[in-house]
Amino acid sequence: MAAEINKPLRYILQAINYSVFMALIWYFATAPSIRIIEDDEAMLTMAFAHAGELREPCRRLSQEELNKLAPNMRKLDDCPRERSPVLIEMLLDGEPVYKKQLDAPGLYNDGGVDVYFSQTIKAGEHRIILKMDDSVRGSGFEYFTEQTVDVVPAQILLVGFNTRSGFVVR
């Protein structure tokens, strides 16, 4: 049983309790604040999807082989599904910041790889080198980009990729 106190005092105590409850919400609804990057920093982000080259090239079927197939299955090329792993390297001002070989996902290793990498960098001028080897049949890097970028504070320096243009830095 609660100790008996008079009504005005009870309301004062309730006001104190509500104030504490609201103060908790007041504070933790917005504080403590977090700093994502420093004032002189920017974010280097690499994000793209890319499917490596097929491990084996497609082979044109002979007429004899085609004849053996049901009419609705007569595709001219026989393409194995498995794709090459994708090796990506990124150097910033000569220092390696990213180097990873990504295996093609999927039960038959036939999917495209998704690349996501993010790191804070100092704002200012940087020399960026990007390399990609996406075929086990070729030698060396199929794609290569080297360029100087000027990054302003808080900027997201985005590295993208498409097979037509190669690496795109913006």
Partner: peptide
Amino acid sequence: DLTTVPQILNIDWFYLNVYPLLD
């Protein structure tokens, strides 16, 4: 603005407490 990174955020710790861990 998806081309910039927010520098300081006043996060709601009741709901978003997991997110700073991702940093």
